[in-house]
Design a binder for these strands. Structure first.
Lengths: 349, 349
DNA sequence: ATCGCTTACGATATCGATAACAATCGGGCG
DNA sequence: CGCCCGATTGTTATCGATATCGTAAGCGAT
């Protein structure tokens, strides 16, 4: 009895290799390799033959293999708290813009605002032997810190000013920014200022913003401790709406609220609309981050703006510089770049 | 004269190799490899010794090297139009959730709603020899299509229902969804419905939504052609605001507007607020995508909801299934999964 | 003609892991 | 007691590219 008809197997057309291209072009693999790098010294004619062979075979270079011999993977690991947050995705985009000009590829990971998760991700990323790594945080678990330090690659910490930098830094002080915002509200005449933020200490930037708020009200001699902690980061619009109600119920005399992000500020403002509380008449509301929604909401939302894309651009540039230093065996030269922030006053305060 | 103090060179502590771990643990490299995979058959005692050695040397597995011999890189390439769009970042997140359970890594790329850029990205991604690829589109340049087909790996097209699928599909008909929305507006009594979208044909999903609108107004015998095209995708809140003004000036009798996305709908509504045009009294406004802002804006925005994260989850699952089929030498089994959409009526219409 | 130098290319030895197969050891069983 | 078997571990040969060094040819200067 014959066996059943053989199942039609996938024609897993194994991708062509460089050797096959070489054979077809009548040259050695090494010459193909050179032809496919821009810097290779190859005569015009052989290059033509090689490119023709590449085209005929539909060959695409295998960088996984190349990475092994050249010891440069062309990866840049990037860790962000969340990709749904447009601030961070702007930064990621800035990084991409810079590094892709050098043929580098971003390896993106989400920490979910969690240092433990960050630690796992650092380990997972190092497994791919990236040429450099950019993290969105100045605080790490001891183990994560150790791994970053001993990885032997440039590290850039962004969005923060770490007390004890690992290597390079591109950031700003979230506390100072928040403090400046409170001062501005004070100048405008507000005297009972509350703060709305997340309940978790995982979000270190959020914690810093709260710290800046606390310092400012102390400095100014304003009533302190008027803070509402609500939910895990990222604080949503919904949570902003709930928090503002709590804030006003608990301290009916508050005349202004600083929110940990524009999203919660927006939620708060919309909840006030719904309840007929005028903004800023009954209560002024400010956010953080200058998200698109703050520029187009009505009232437009007072906020602290940071050029997120620029943070990415600068982090990318610094990383490229560091890679260049390594390439040319120059000594390492850790840099700290402080990017500016700006308090933008709009109709919500 | 002595030369200047030698510059302190980087201690580029070359990362430890598996062989070094093996030597330290007194076993062969192969045994280390087995110990570090979960499935490896290794006695408890040797595993202990090996893990100790790993710890002492701070060893992390080099997957680049592993990929070369095992012929599986553990990468899944994912192409999205934009990462700043929370719909797509939700999908990306869903994909990550599924694939990271299998130890796979996402390689993310942005096409900027541009098929040419997509083509370049496909090529760049294939260079990394991913085990599978997920794209957010049903239309591609001929070359991109050819590369995807001949890559010999599972392909999943999402967010669309391609007429001629390459392999697997997880999507829905943007045209149908848009059509359903217009019908719903009709039921509510609106008879002069306009459409606000991007000027570029690059955004194929946007074009499909416009198509659905056009079909619907034809079916219903409503005045047609009341569409405003404005700016390149992604259409921003600002552009939505500008477009609604044009729409109303051009056709003063419009009583409802369908926007290509919630973001432009939000911008339009806020512009109406500013001008004192009641929404939905003067004009009803609907969006697409069920973004967070639509749920918390006031009025809340009528929209078409799709479970974006779920698209990612399902795409991930289908991809894993396909990889499993390959592993077990089962025949390929291209699947098309149509995910539901839902018109959600809120106060803006 | 010789030398020196540049340009274009090939041969070989890796890079660091894993696949595939071989080897060893102990124990169960006829 | 001999044989077979499963569990554990080692050996060897890759995977597909690139680094490095070597070689041959071409060419101008002396």
């Amino acid at each position: 009895m014959k066996p059943p008809r053989p199942t039609p197997r996938t024609i897993t057309k194994r991708p062509a290799t460089m050797a096959e291209v070489a054979a077809r072009a009548g040259v050695s693999a090494m010459t193909v390799s050179r032809a496919l790098k821009s810097d290779g010294a190859v005569s015009e004619e052989t290059r033509r033959k090689i490119l023709a062979a590449v085209d005929e075979l539909g060959y695409v270079l295998d960088l996984s293999a190349g990475a092994l011999s050249s010891k440069r993977t062309g990866f840049v690991a990037v860790l962000v708290p969340s990709i749904n947050n447009s601030n961070f995705s702007d930064t990621a985009r800035g990084i991409t813009e810079i590094i892709e000009s050098q043929g580098l590829q971003m390896l993106l990971g989400y920490t979910d605002y969690d240092m433990e998760k960050e630690e796992q991700l650092v380990q997972a990323m190092l497994t791919r032997r990236p040429d450099g790594i950019i993290v969105t945080d100045g605080r790490h678990t001891p183990k994560a810190r150790r791994m970053l330090q001993s990885a032997g690659i440039p590290v850039v910490e962004t969005w923060d000013l770490p007390a004890d930098p690992i290597d390079h830094v591109v950031g700003f002080s979230n506390a100072e920014a928040s403090r400046a915002l409170v001062h501005r509200l004070y100048q405008k005449g507000y005297r009972n200022i509350g703060f709305i933020g997340g309940a978790s200490r995982r979000d270190t930037r959020g914690a810093d913003r709260r710290l800046g708020y606390t310092r400012a009200v102390e400095e100014l001699g304003l009533p302190a401790g008027r803070t509402i902690s609500f939910g895990n980061p990222p604080i949503s619009m919904e949570q902003g709406g709930q928090a503002i109600v709590h804030l006003i119920q608990q301290w009916p005399d508050v005349d202004a609220a600083v929110c940990v992000s524009d999203l919660s500020a927006f939620g708060a403002i919309m909840e006030c609309h719904r309840r007929g509380w005028a903004v800023p008449g009954r209560i002024a509301i400010a956010g953080f981050g200058d998200f698109e929604v703050s520029r187009w909401a009505w009232p437009r939302i007072t906020t602290v703006a940071v050029d997120c894309r620029n943070i990415g651009l600068e982090a990318g540039r610094i990383l490229l510089g560091a890679l260049d230093d390594i390439q040319n065996e120059r000594p390492p030269n850790p840099a700290t770049l402080i990017v500016p922030f700006e308090v933008i006053e709009r109709e919500s305060t």
